[in-house]
């Protein structure tokens, strides 16, 4: 129990995938313009990450390791992720067509999102129980959603700021992300 809480804390804050490990930066910059799209993307990624983490653990431990197919890990994980992403896309399409449109290309791109693949690979390698893998995936997703929401709120406020012309748009966004990353480094040593 304690261990799971520790994994959760580590993945959400200390080893945040976006701001500490710099994975998954493209949706971080791409869909953080409004809070709604950030929330939608966060939810979608959370769903995919948690499920993919569990599935890839199962495939890895029960299929790839016993049959010594370790070299197929990456490709089979990509397939698993693609499957879950497809599933998510169907749900979003049915539930909220506008969100589906707003997320646009970023939704199928979760498939090749380095954060998602990174989580799958890491959880397969590091953890030795299914629950741990699930907690790890969920923690990573929660961390991703958290920074995405924080960043979208910052960007909404930045939209009204008097930014020098040279820094307008993504430039000031990246600077803000850098400062946020510095702030998250403050969590180092927490757990």
């Amino acid at each position: 129990m304690n261990e799971w809480a520790l994994i959760l804390l580590t993945t959400v804050l200390v080893n945040n995938f976006v701001l500490t490990q710099f994975l998954g930066l493209c949706p971080f910059m791409g869909v953080s313009r409004t809070l709604e799209s950030a929330l939608g993307m966060g939810m979608a990624t959370s769903f995919v990450l948690t499920l993919a983490s569990a599935l890839s653990y199962i495939i890895n431990q029960w299929l790839l390791v016993p049959f010594e197919l370790g070299y197929l890990r990456t490709i089979s994980f990509i397939l698993i992720i693609a499957l879950v992403v497809q599933f998510t896309e169907i749900i979003i399409r049915q539930r909220s067509p506008m969100l589906h449109r707003v997320l646009g290309l970023y939704l199928p791109l979760i498939t090749t999102n380095c954060a998602v693949l990174g989580v799958a690979l890491l959880s397969a390698r590091q953890h030795d129980s299914l629950i741990e893998a699930v907690v790890f995936g969920f923690g990573a997703a929660a961390g991703f959603t958290l920074v995405l929401i924080l960043f979208s709120l910052l960007r909404q406020r930045l939209a009204g700021a008097n930014v020098p012309p040279a820094f307008k748009g993504n430039a000031i966004g990246l600077i803000t992300a850098g400062i946020m990353s510095l702030a998250f480094m403050g969590f180092t040593g927490l757990a």
Partner: peptide, 18 residues
């Protein structure tokens, strides 16, 4: 055989969902 099975199963499910 298991390799082919895994790949096939994944592709089939993906295609079905698509």
């Amino acid at each position: 055989i298991p390799f082919l099975l895994v790949v096939f199963a994944l592709i089939a499910t993906g295609a079905l969902l698509a």
